Amino acid sequence: MNFDQILKARRSVRVYDENAGFDSQIVTKSLERSVLSANSSNMQLWEFYQISSEEKKKKIVRACMHQSAARTASELVVFVTRHDKWKKRAAWNLANMEKQFVGKEITSKDKRALNYYKKLMPLFYTNDFLGIATLIRFLIVSYHTIIGKPIIHLITHADQRVSLHKTCALAAQTFMLSMKSENYDTCPMEGFDERIIKRILNLPASAEVCMVIACGIGKSEGIYGPRTRVPNDEVIFKV
C-alpha cells in the first residue's frame, strides 16, 4: 500500500479474530520503527511495552476493563512516558554531540548546541520539592513576556507532562501506521486503570501511561461504522 492507502485503511478496530495467525515479530518491527518518530529535543522520554505473554495480557485486559479491543487482541502494546529519565537522556545526547566535535575547533554554534543539553534541558525538566525550579522558570518566562520576547511557556510539571505525551503519541501513531502497512489492525485505548498497569509493568510513580494499543487481525464487526470527519474547511486553515 502507498501512504494514502495506509491512512485510509487504518481504522480503530475493536474486535479481533482470535483464531487468525499472528506474527509477533511485526509488532516488534513496528516498535523499532516507532523509535524513529519525531520527539522533543531528541530526549526520547518514552518506553514501549510489547505484551506478548498470556499472563501479562490477561492482567492488562482487566486493567482495560475487559473492553473488546483489549480482550480479543492478539497482543497489546503500552506506550509510556518517562519524565524521570531526563538526566540520563540529556547526558546521552550530550555525549553523542561531544563525539561529533572531537578533533575540530568548537565554534560558537557548537557551544550553543552543547549548552542546549548542559543548561537548557536541566532548566526545562528539573523539579524539586520546594518548587524552586518552577519559580525560576516562571520568572524567566514572565520577564520575556514583559519585554515582548517569544519564549517557550514550559513552566510547571503539568506543562512538562503535556510535552512528553505529545512526543509519545507521535510514536504511537507511527506504530499504528506501520502495523497497517503490514496488514494488521490496531486500536488505541485511553480507557484503562493506569495504576494497575503501572503495577503490572513495575513502573515508577513518575511514569505515565500514554495509551494502550490493541493489535491483531480485525473482524469486520470490529469497525463500528463508516469513518466520518468534520469538513476540512472547519479544521484546515491557510493564513
Rank of each mutant, 00 (worst) to 15 (best):
T28S: 13
H165T: 13
K88D: 13
S40C: 14
S74W: 03
W92F: 13
M176I: 05
M121L: 15
L201T: 09
R62V: 12
C210D: 06
F48G: 00
V239H: 09
I197Q: 02
Y184E: 04
A95I: 09
P231K: 06
N115T: 05
F22S: 04
D17H: 02
V77E: 01
K87Q: 12
H144T: 07
I51N: 07
W86S: 02
Y125V: 02
N42E: 07
H153G: 00
K59E: 14
L139N: 00
A113Q: 15
N232S: 10
M211K: 01
P231F: 00
P231T: 05
S30A: 14
I132Y: 09
D4P: 07
C64F: 06
A38E: 13
P204A: 01
V162C: 08
S178Q: 11
I6P: 01
Q50K: 05
C64N: 11
D185N: 04
Y125C: 12
P226H: 08
L36Y: 13
N96S: 13
F79A: 03
S163P: 00
I6T: 06
L203I: 05
H83I: 14
N127E: 14
V77M: 06
K119V: 05
T126V: 14
M176G: 01
H165D: 10
K29P: 05
F138C: 05
E234G: 14
T174S: 15
D128K: 07
L120A: 15
G103K: 15
W92A: 15
E32F: 06
M43T: 09
T167Y: 07
R62D: 15
V239P: 12
H157C: 06
L120N: 12
E75A: 03
T134H: 02
Q100E: 15
P231N: 12
H83G: 12
R33K: 10
R112F: 04
S74E: 08
K238V: 14
R10E: 08
R14K: 09
K99E: 13
K104I: 13
K87V: 09
L94C: 03
E18G: 08
N115P: 09
Y116H: 14
A207Y: 03
M97D: 04
R137P: 03
L203W: 02
S206T: 15
I151F: 02
T28L: 08
L177E: 03
N183F: 10
T81W: 02
K219N: 11
M211N: 01
A113I: 12
V102F: 09
T134G: 03
S37Y: 15
K58T: 10
D110L: 12
S108M: 12
A9H: 02
I6F: 08
D128T: 09
L123G: 01
V141A: 08
L31S: 02
N183P: 02
S52L: 04
M121S: 02
R112V: 10
A9Y: 06
I217Q: 15
N93A: 15
A205K: 13
A133S: 12
P188D: 08
